[in-house]
Amino acid sequence: MDSLLMNRRKFLYQFKNVRWAKGRRETYLCYVVKRRDSATSFSLDFGYLRNKNGCHVELLFLRYISDWDLDPGRCYRVTWFTSWSPCYDCARHVADFLRGNPNLSLRIFTARLYFCEDRKAEPEGLRRLHRAGVQIAIMTFKDYFYCWNTFVENHERTFKAWEGLHENSVRLSRQLRRILLPLYEVDDLRDAFRTLGL
């Protein structure tokens, strides 16, 4: 685990949702873990991680939370803000982990979509996460503002959007929607068949 708060310049560089993210070879993951008790929730931990020694950050987080003694009788909500969406292998590990821990839910807000040039399996990884109940969305100004005030050593500076933040968020949201769209259509068809008694 690194220091509790991320350096301001590092956050702006790593999380910037630019179309061509040249040189950004690491994934950063800011997280919040909450325990839900009926209508209220309690923050248990927050911080950030990054890839280390060739190990992807998603797997580092799974190792980290596996060391906790999570009460199977309580519900936990984990929220990630990531600089890149998970690769196919990490998505598979996360989905398997969630299946083994049904009392834990995960939301992922990502700055950019990761696509490995040689495999093109990453969209299927995102669909697999979605099927496992993970809520996946692209970061918007509101999410960047929250991260800036929660995870960044900002020295009381106000978060300022860079040129193109909104447009890139919209573009990436549409792309993510197209990736997940087949799932929505299949769910709609299943509901229609059930309604018709087929």
Rank of each mutant, 00 (worst) to 15 (best):
C116L: 04
C116S: 03
D118P: 15
L113Q: 03
A121W: 00
R119Q: 12
R119D: 13
C116Y: 10
L113C: 03
F115Q: 06
L113S: 09
E117I: 11
R119C: 12
P123L: 11
A121C: 00
Y114G: 03
K120I: 00
A121S: 07
C116H: 03
P123E: 06
P123M: 13
Y114K: 00
D118V: 00
D118C: 05
F115H: 15
D118G: 05
D118W: 02
P123F: 04
C116G: 07
L113G: 09
D118M: 13
K120W: 13
P123W: 04
A121F: 00
K120A: 09
A121T: 02
C116E: 00
E122Q: 12
C116K: 06
D118N: 14
D118L: 11
R119E: 13
C116F: 11
A121P: 15
F115V: 07
P123G: 02
E117W: 06
L113R: 08
E117A: 11
K120Y: 15
L113I: 00
K120N: 10
Y114H: 04
R119F: 11
Y114S: 00
F115C: 08
P123R: 15
E122P: 05
Y114I: 00
P123I: 07
L113Y: 07
E117D: 15
A121I: 00
Y114L: 02
R119V: 08
R119H: 14
P123D: 00
E122I: 00
E122C: 11
K120G: 06
K120L: 08
K120E: 06
F115N: 06
A121G: 06
Y114P: 07
A121Q: 14
D118S: 07
E122S: 08
E122K: 03
D118F: 05
F115K: 15
D118T: 09
E122D: 08
E122T: 05
E117N: 14
F115W: 14
R119Y: 12
E117C: 14
L113D: 00
R119G: 15
E122G: 12
Y114A: 02
F115R: 07
L113W: 03
C116Q: 00
D118Q: 07
E117F: 10
R119A: 11
E122M: 08
Y114F: 00
E117T: 14
R119I: 06
C116R: 04
D118A: 15
P123Q: 14
R119P: 05
E117V: 12
R119N: 14
E117R: 08
K120V: 06
Y114T: 00
P123S: 04
C116N: 09
R119K: 12
E122N: 15
E117Y: 09
C116T: 04
C116V: 13
P123H: 13
R119S: 12
L113P: 05
E117P: 06
Y114C: 00
Y114W: 03
E122V: 02
L113K: 00
K120T: 10
R119W: 12
L113A: 07
A121D: 05
A121M: 11
P123C: 10
F115E: 03
F115L: 07
C116I: 08
F115Y: 15
A121K: 12
R119L: 10
D118I: 00
K120Q: 06
F115T: 02
E117L: 09
D118E: 11
L113E: 09
E122W: 04
A121H: 08
Y114V: 00
L113N: 03
L113H: 00
P123T: 03
E122Y: 00
D118Y: 09
C116D: 00
Y114M: 03
E117H: 10
F115I: 07
C116A: 12
D118H: 14
R119M: 11
P123V: 06
E117Q: 14
Y114R: 02
Y114E: 00
E117S: 13
D118R: 14
F115M: 12
A121N: 08
A121R: 13
A121E: 05
F115A: 04
E122A: 10
A121L: 13
C116P: 04
E122H: 10
P123K: 05
P123N: 10
C116M: 07
E117G: 10
F115P: 02
E122L: 04
F115G: 02
F115D: 03
L113V: 08
E117K: 09
K120H: 14
K120R: 15
Y114N: 00
K120C: 13
E122R: 02
K120S: 11
A121Y: 13
R119T: 13
P123A: 08
L113F: 10
E122F: 10
C116W: 08
P123Y: 02
A121V: 11
Y114D: 09
K120P: 04
K120D: 09
K120M: 09
Y114Q: 02
F115S: 05
L113T: 05
L113M: 05
D118K: 04
E117M: 12
K120F: 15
